[in-house]
């Protein structure tokens, strides 16, 4: 199982913001900042972080909707940014994305069936008849009935729309599925249905997931390994159980303590949570202004993602000693 499938190396994506037409001052935003990450065949890698931390930019880079400023990603050993046209098309067949908002990601003028079979048409797979058959088969798999095939997206509820989005992603038989906040716009009872479905499909189709979410409970439920992102960087990467049972990075601890517990007996005094995620420091650790463990070195030297043990990596000078 542990075969490197996707390898992300020193990946950086910066955006240049100019402050206005007549203002020459420019600001550079590092949405993804020098990330190294591996995804193994058959695993679910959870990627968690607050809004604006670069999770979705990373997803866009992986699907080649954006080009990096530097660094590269390899898929089965080949750099995806040096693909020729043919290879890119094959890659896009192999890597599919499920979007957050099932309301805006489905074409309102198309029926469910034609949305689901469109990828087959684009990739010229099969003929008219086999395309419809394949689409109906996957619809049944995600829990949509045959009768619903000719309905339009406004006739479906949020959960059902997300099922259409999932069917559309899976109809090409991809190996890697990037799920970008697939359940965050759904109600909790519907969210559970979709999470169970994603788990089943992974097993049935032998999928590898990159599962992006801001919700630590969802990530905990579905992931094998978890990467925590903060302001464009991975600050901690570890096995699911380690992240939740012995979080190493102060930011991971802060995130975990901020999740409201469902036990009213434990109206916990939340850990002192201060500040907001903002890039303010030119030097040192990006998290220093919000960190309660800050020492001298944190203001000067930026910590690198270091190996702590076989499966754990953490970008903190004090990892292991706090």
């Amino acid at each position: 199982m542990l075969k490197t499938f996707v390898e992300i190396r020193e990946l950086t994506k910066k955006y240049i913001l100019s402050s206005g037409l007549f203002n020459p001052r420019k600001r550079i935003i590092y949405a993804v900042n020098n990330i190294d990450l591996q995804i193994f065949k058959g695993e679910t890698l959870g990627l968690v972080g607050e809004s604006g931390c670069g999770k979705s930019t990373l997803a866009r880079l992986m699907t080649r909707l954006e080009k990096p400023s530097s660094g590269y990603i390899t898929f089965k050993g080949e750099n995806i940014f040096s693909y020729d046209k043919e290879a890119l098309k094959a890659y896009r067949r192999n890597v599919q994305i499920i979007f957050q908002d099932p309301y805006s990601s489905l074409n309102p003028r198309k029926s469910a069936l034609s949305i689901i079979k469109e990828p087959l048409t684009i990739h010229r797979i099969g003929d008219k008849k086999t395309r419809s058959e394949a689409a109906l088969e996957i619809m049944a798999k995600v829990g949509l009935s045959k009768e619903q095939a000719n309905r339009y997206s406004h006739e479906f509820s949020g959960g059902q729309r997300q099922r259409i989005g999932i069917a559309r992603a899976l109809v090409l038989n991809p190996e890697l599925v990037i799920a970008d906040e697939p359940v965050s716009s759904l109600d909790v009872s519907i969210q559970a249905q979709i999470l169970n479905l994603l788990k089943d499909l992974k097993h049935d189709y032998n999928l590898t997931y990159l599962f992006i979410s801001h919700d630590l409970n969802v990530i905990r439920y579905i992931s094998d390994r978890v990467a925590v992102m903060y302001l464009g960087k991975i600050v901690e990467l570890a096995l699911n159980s380690d992240i939740y049972n012995r979080p190493l990075h102060p930011y991971t601890r802060m995130l975990l303590s901020a999740v409201p517990s469902c036990d009213p007996q434990k109206k916990k005094r939340m850990m002192n949570i201060k500040g907001e995620a903002r890039a303010e420091n030119d030097e040192g650790c990006a998290f220093q202004n919000r960190c309660s463990y800050k020492t001298e070195i944190c203001a000067k030297v930026e910590p690198r993602l270091e190996k702590i043990d076989e499966q754990s990596f953490c970008a903190c000078h004090l990892a292991g000693s706090i």
Binding site: L216, M254, P260, I273, K274
Partner: peptide, 11 residues
Amino acid sequence: LDVTIQAQILD
């Protein structure tokens, strides 16, 4: 809001 900001606002 994000969870850390949510915790601050609830407080």
